[in-house]
Design a protein around this nucleic acid. Structure first.
Length: 836
RNA sequence: GCCGAGGUGGCGGAAUGGUAGACGCGAGGGACUUAAAAUCCCUUAUCCACUAACGGAUGUGCGGGUUCAAUUCCCGCCCUCGGCACCA
């Protein structure tokens, strides 16, 4: 968003980059046997010519759907973060392919969105143009990584052939009563000049630009995701996702179980409900608060002496909330309505107040307050409202203070109940369920479940998005755009200045088109859709090549869904990943798909930072991979990224270690191509043992996405092979196969030099033989009193008694065997532990 | 405040009860070279001792505990990072 460009800095960085590259090239030894640039280009061309990565979706026997979260095609080049995500994900896909799966690894572009529009505002270049160009550039760059993407099935959310289905989805939601328009206080970003979904207003700030979000009363389109709260919650149990992500979604959905009390007002015939998720303290409740936006406020005060003041307060609060100045912590205010709740619990009447802090769209928007809540306590103290306590700490001195209301005593599981009589002496933390039963039995209230998840606000007052396919008749009633008019094209005759109104309002063509089709006085919906709508179903559209008349082929959906492996950033935990699940569930209910969940297994790659800070254009600290790839090749760069540390951890960028991988690649190439020997028929047992240990380790490590240790075990194998004069060509080829997922170009080159047939990527993944990994002699470690005192080398089937005997005879062990041996522990094949 | 993850050499990290520091970077020394780069070999947690050869103590954020044996398991604390937060 905020592109505080510092051209001098970038120039400086580029200049230094160039100098260091030239310096490196100058000093590069020409005797390096492996020259990546031409070789990598050669293999990419051969893969493409032979359609190695084209998935035959209908014919596939063992489908494996492997996806990464598709990128936004920005004008900037691919950065290290993209590589860090895509390269290891690709290594995993390749591994699966070699294990015999029919892997489908597509790639596409999430191309609608604000940056292209902001770029248009700055430069006048239309978003459609800049986006198309960026997509082209990005495809070129993506191909350079050497990933096995099936480019036949690529997609861009901005293609009319794609957003036709975004609009179709909207209409399906509309037909099935899951899309509705509603006036309400919505999050609005004054800088982006658009509304935001609840999920996009993080910490009271715009997710995109960091501006303080304000509350604005606007009429907006919502999708009823709240209806799916329980299913979204239940579905998590069966997913192979990071526990942390599941927990974040659970918290976001925020299920809470409690009670609803039905309350009656005194003097007028008026009743309503309040929700209470901590009903243990219901007998401490001494007043009731209602949200200023609540429509019932007006009814309550109508015709009373309080009416004028209360309504003025409400108006002032609404206005205040629509400004950037409003901070809920600082503006705790309220006003008495003059009304009382009629003695609900037999403990007296409760005065009803309008209070700033009451959340309108959670529960019923009206709440009962007690002394056992910090906020309620502070509010009561401020306005002199009486309080009473029903629980106290076990410590009598503290209990006395609590009863005297010296401070707020809240949510302490050890707190002891004092009232009502039935619960006296019991711990607050243990009576919850019993209190609910008591309330239900006495018919004071009913069980109630609430969710914090809000409906998804899908409309945006911006240009570069899929138009909402709705038109309004002259009376202002909404009508869906009929299917034959889809795609409901995004007009091009618009200004891009954000005004808070949709830019589409300016389009003459859009209005003319609407009137021509629907009649005079008809108006199109001027809002476009949140880009998260576009990305909520793209995994289904990959399965349908190009423009098609159907949303999905049911047979392909049944066969390929859910996505077997989905890799992307953790920042989407409560946005994309919850929307996509909701959309999949809704589509299942509408009868279009057979599965409930879109992503079976999910993994988050870690974040790559630069000097501890997140890379961003505005900070000018984005590391470009291009220079490294130019110099060392894609294989080296992707292996370096994988070798940095665990994939899910990310880490701080530094280029000091890349030479380690450069050396590894050169040494490996030289050793394998020079020492592989046709004449060697049988490899030495210790060489075979090393190979099979490596097969075992690399297989397990790639499967668990521990690429760093997979590479390190290949390095260990190289260290063994380098010491040999020669080994079999067969062994050399197996090493090429093991390397194929991690360094695909290098592996192909080695494979072909060693006379391998076809492509190495089409080979079967080797199976390790446990019998071959057993060494003839083993080292047994000897400990005395838990301290290491020596070791012995014995044949692998040496009996235990003999090992114990040898252990005790060691000179350095003898020194410490000063008394009688109390205990002898022998861990077979590992160690002897003696206790004296 | 609530929830979650983590803390290991100069650095990235490895080891989930069994030789702590694999693998790599960096650094130091040596070989090759007119020289440099590249390459190859040796050393590299800290302290002490020895350096003819062998060793000893300490050590995985801090303090306890379980065990023959703890980076790993248990209890208490400190710090860092991530998420949520006027939801009663």
């Amino acid at each position: 968003m905020n592109c505080g460009d510092r051209p001098w800095l970038i120039l400086n960085l580029r200049l230094w980059g160039c100098i260091s590259i030239i310096a490196h090239l100058y000093t590069l030894n020409m005797s390096n046997p492996y020259d990546p640039t031409p070789i990598e280009a050669k293999w990419r061309k051969k893969w493409e010519e032979n359609g190695v990565y084209t998935a035959a979706l209908a014919k596939a026997k063992k489908p494996y759907y492997s996806m990464v979260m598709f990128p936004y095609p920005s004008g900037d080049k691919l950065h290290v973060g993209h590589w860090y995500n895509y390269a290891p994900a690709d290594s995993y896909s390749r591994f699966k392919k070699m294990q015999g799966y029919d892997v489908f690894a597509p790639m596409g572009f999430d191309a609608f969105g604000l940056p292209a529009e902001n770029y248009a505002i700055k430069t006048g270049v239309k978003p459609a143009e800049s986006t198309a160009k960026n997509v082209q550039t990005m495809i070129e760059q993506l191909k350079r990584i050497g990933c096995m993407y099936d480019w036949d099935k690529t997609l861009s959310t901005t293609d009319p052939g794609y957003y036709r289905w975004t609009q179709w989805l909207f209409l399906e939601m509309y037909k099935n009563k899951l899309a509705y328009k509603k006036l309400g206080n919505v999050n609005f970003c004054p800088s982006c000049q658009t509304v935001l979904a609840n999920e996009q207003a993080q910490d009271g700030k715009c997710e995109r630009c960091g501006t303080d979000v304000i509350q604005k009363p606007l009429e907006q389109w919502f999708w009823n995701i709240k209806k799916y709260s329980q299913r979204l919650l239940d579905g998590l149990t069966g997913l192979d996702w990071p526990e942390k992500t599941k927990l974040m979604q659970r918290n976001w959905i925020g299920r809470s179980e409690g009670v609803n009390f039905t309350l009656k007002l005194k003097d007028i015939d008026f009743s309503f409900e309040v929700y209470d998720s901590i009903p243990q303290t219901f007998n401490a409740q001494t007043f009731t608060v209602i949200a200023p936006e609540h429509p019932m406020v007006e009814t309550m005060v109508k015709g009373t002496p309080y009416e004028k003041d209360v309504l003025a307060f409400v108006a002032r609060m609404k206005k205040l909330k629509a400004t950037e100045k409003y901070k809920f912590e600082e503006h705790v205010e309220g006003i008495f309505t003059g009304r009382y709740v009629d003695n609900p619990f037999g403990t007296g009447d409760l005065p009803v107040w309008v209070a700033s802090f009451v959340v309108m769209d959670y529960g019923t928007g009206i709440v009962n307050c007690s002394a056992h809540d910090e906020r309620d306590f502070a509010f009561a103290k401020k306005y002199g409202i009486p309080l009473k306590t029903v629980m106290a700490p076990a410590d009598p001195v503290e209990a006395k203070k609590v009863r005297a209301l010296e401070y707020c005593y809240t949510k302490d599981t050890e707190g002891v109940m004092e009232y009502p009589e039935e619960f006296k002496g019991r711990k607050w933390g243990e009576v919850r369920e019993d209190v609910i039963d008591y309330i239900v039995k006495k018919k004071i209230g009913t069980r109630q479940i609430n969710y914090r998840l809000r409906d998804w606000l899908v409309s945006r007052q911006r240009y570069w998005g899929a138009p909402i396919p709705i038109v309004y008749d002259p009376e202002g009633k909404a009508h869906p755009v009929p299917d034959e008019h889809l795609p409901w094209l995004l007009p091009t005759d618009v200004e891009f200045k954000p005004t808070g109104k949709s830019p589409l309002t300016d389009s003459k063509e859009f209005i003319t088109r609407t009137e021509k089709i629907f009649g005079k006085g008809w108006r199109p919906e001027f809002d476009t859709m949140d880009t998260f709508v576009c990305s909520s179903f793209y995994y289904l559209r990959y399965l349908m090549e190009g423009d098609s008349k159907k949303f999905i082929d049911p047979a392909l959906e049944k066969k390929w869904m859910p996505v077997d492996m989905y890799i992307g950033g953790p920042e989407h935990a409560c946005m994309h990943l919850i929307y996509a699940r909701f959309v999949m569930m809704a589509l299942k209910d509408f009868g279009h798909v057979s599965h409930e969940e879109p992503f079976k297994k999910l993994v988050h790659q870690g974040l790559i930072t630069n000097k501890g800070a997140k890379m961003s254009k505005s900070k000018g600290n984005v590391v470009s991979p291009d220079a490294f790839v130019e110099q060392h090749g894609a294989d080296v760069f992707r292996m370096y990224l994988m070798f940095m540390g665990p994939f899910t951890d990310g880490g701080d960028w530094s280029d000091t270690g890349i030479n380690g991988i450069v050396r590894f690649v050169q040494r490996l190439f030289r050793t394998i191509t020079e020492k592989s020997n046709k004449k060697v028929i049988q490899d030495k047992p210790q060489v075979l043992a090393a190979l099979h240990k490596t097969i075992q380790k690399v297989s397990a490590d790639i499967e668990s996405l521990h690429f760093n240790t997979a590479i390190s075990s290949l390095m260990q194998l190289l260290n063994v092979l380098e010491k040999e004069d020669s080994f079999s060509e067969e062994l050399g080829r197996t090493v090429a196969v093991l390397l194929a997922p991690l360094a695909p170009h290098l592996a192909e080159e080695m494979w072909s030099i060693l006379g391998g047939l076809g492509f190495v990527i089409n080979q079967q993944w080797p199976i390790f033989d446990p019998a071959l990994t057993v060494e003839a002699t083993i080292t047994i470690v000897v400990q005395v009193n838990g301290k290491l005192r020596g070791s012995i080398l014995v044949p692998k089937d040496e009996p235990a008694e003999s090992i114990l005997k040898q252990a005790k005879e060691l000179e350095n062990v003898q020194k410490y065997l000063t008394g009688e041996i109390k205990k002898e522990v022998y861990v077979p094949g590992k160690l002897v532990s003696l206790v004296v």
